[in-house]
């Protein structure tokens, strides 16, 4: 399978400015700090990590919704990171994004019908086609055509998320960056939407970057998974291998924190202490060392790079994990 998208050393640093009249840059929030990965055509790459780890910023920087500070975003062989104007507009038909918080992007004065029609209107889809598509998409995301004339505030949190998904599907995109698309959905509808996304993926050869915090959902839908922490990828690999054999302590903690639907289970949970450090002042060395139960001296001083950690497609960035040579990943 060829790479549809390749991200190379992507960085997004948001300047922190002080002073009202002559603002001066006093620092930077390193939201994305040197991220590299590839996405093969037709696959789903899961991107997981705690809030603020930079997964959404990565998604937005790919689409140039925010201008990357550094790095390349190669889509179908072309660096799109500096696209502007008409080229960017065209690109945004190809690459769509489903947002995390649909309420913020749903205009409270527009009906559901108007909200879903909006992107099609912008790209000149004829009225009749628009109307058919609205009915189809409402059905597809688990709403009914009787919802068309209602306003966002009349829906519960989960129902609103579905409206956002319907809107993203309107322009038949090739790559969809899904930023927490099902996390607000209740499980029965979540299962339908996941099934639907998998169906649509097969049928239309769609490629997904699936950003989520629900590790069970990511496990189910992804072919490969990248785990992010403080703007970096700490582990990436083929999904079954990564879940069965997590190498990075952060991945291990994430996996052990999942609440499982089994009241008999009594587990030794690895509860991480503390909060995510500030991305404007990340810890030196391994950025995870302040919360890592295994940290040693070298972790406080030297930054670990991603290295092959099994003979499969599996890399991790941890000093304490042995490098495996002869990998084909």
């Amino acid at each position: 399978m060829s790479n549809l998208l390749e991200v190379k050393n992507l960085k997004k640093h948001f300047p922190i400015k002080k002073g009202a009249i002559f603002p001066k840059q006093v620092g930077a929030v390193k939201a994305v700090d040197g991220v590299s990965f590839h996405v093969r055509k037709g696959e789903t790459l899961g991107l997981v990590g705690e809030s603020g780890c930079g997964k959404s910023t990565t998604g937005r920087a790919i689409l140039n919704l925010i201008q990357p500070s550094e790095g390349e975003v190669i889509y179908k062989g072309e660096d799109i990171s500096h696209y502007k104007g008409e080229k960017l507009r065209k690109l945004r038909q190809d690459i769509q994004i489903i947002f995390q918080d649909p309420y913020a992007s749903l205009n409270p004065r527009m009906t559901v019908e108007q909200i879903i029609a909006e992107p099609m209107r912008a790209f000149g889809t004829p009225k009749k086609e628009r109307e058919e598509k609205i009915d189809y998409l409402l059905d597809v995301v688990g709403l009914s055509s009787y919802h068309k004339h209602r306003y966002p505030h009349e829906f519960s949190g989960g129902q609103r998320q579905r409206i956002g998904i319907a809107r993203a599907l309107t322009l038949d995109p090739e790559l969809i960056i899904c930023d927490e698309p099902v996390s607000a959905l209740d499980v029965s509808i979540q299962a339908q939407v996941i099934n639907l996304m998998e169906d649509l993926q097969k049928e239309f050869d769609l490629t997904f970057i699936f950003i989520a915090h629900d590790l069970s959902v990511v496990h189910h839908i992804s072919d490969r998974v990248a785990v992010m922490y403080l703007g970096e990828i700490v582990e990436v690999g083929e999904v079954e291998e990564l879940y069965a054999n997590p190498k990075h302590p952060y991945t291990q903690a994430l996996l052990s924190a999942i609440p499982e639907a089994d009241p008999h289970l009594k587990r030794d949970r690895m509860v991480l202490e503390g909060d995510l450090p500030s991305p404007s002042n990340p810890p030196a060395g391994c950025k995870f060392h302040t919360r890592c139960p295994f940290a040693e001296e070298i972790c406080r001083t030297e930054h670990p790079e991603l290295k092959d950690v099994s003979t499969g497609d599996h890399q991790a960035a941890c000093h304490l994990v042995k490098e495996v040579v002869g990998s084909n990943g």
């Binding site: 029965s188 509808i189 189910h220």
Partner: peptide, 14 residues
């Protein structure tokens, strides 16, 4: 409907 990690379903039973 819940995706299970221990036992990945081919397709979720929604």
């Amino acid at each position: 409907s819940i995706p299970q990690i221990k036992n990945r379903q081919d397709r979720l039973e929604a």
